[in-house]
């Protein structure tokens, strides 16, 4: 086994353990478990990636890895964007509630 394979394997194991320790959304956790298991399999059996690339019609295993990484990264950015929007909406809701509550407090005090 090459040095790079060992590094990838250790990193994938670490990421896999983090997913298991932080299960919040079952479906999402399943996705990441399958993903990291795939990375581990690819690290141990690089020929598996080459075979898969052949099946999918991609010219080499390296290209397949790059394509897969790009897809996963794009998906993550999309998810982050959605999450950020959601957080922004929650902040606005808090600010709105505070603004309205403070006003009713002020008008009560003025009565």
């Amino acid at each position: 086994m090459d040095f790079i394979q060992i590094i990838i394997l250790i990193f994938a194991l670490f990421a896999f353990s983090r997913v298991i320790l932080n299960i919040k959304n079952r479906l999402e956790s399943m996705f990441w478990m399958v993903f990291w298991l795939g990375v581990m399999a690819a690290a141990i059996y690089p020929t598996f990636v080459i075979k898969l690339a052949e099946i999918l019609g991609v010219s080499s295993g390296i290209y397949l890895s790059i394509y897969a990484t790009l897809i996963v990264l794009s998906y993550m950015i999309f998810r982050l964007y959605a999450k950020l929007e959601d957080t922004e909406k929650k902040i606005t809701k808090i600010i709105r509630t505070v603004a309205i509550k403070n006003e009713s407090k002020t008008s009560k005090n003025n009565r």
Binding site: I91, T92, I95, A99, I100, N102, E103
Partner: peptide
């Protein structure tokens, strides 16, 4: 007068 303690934008 209602006060947004931080800026949230015109729509908000």
């Amino acid at each position: 007068a209602l006060k947004h303690i931080i800026n949230r934008g015109q729509g908000a």
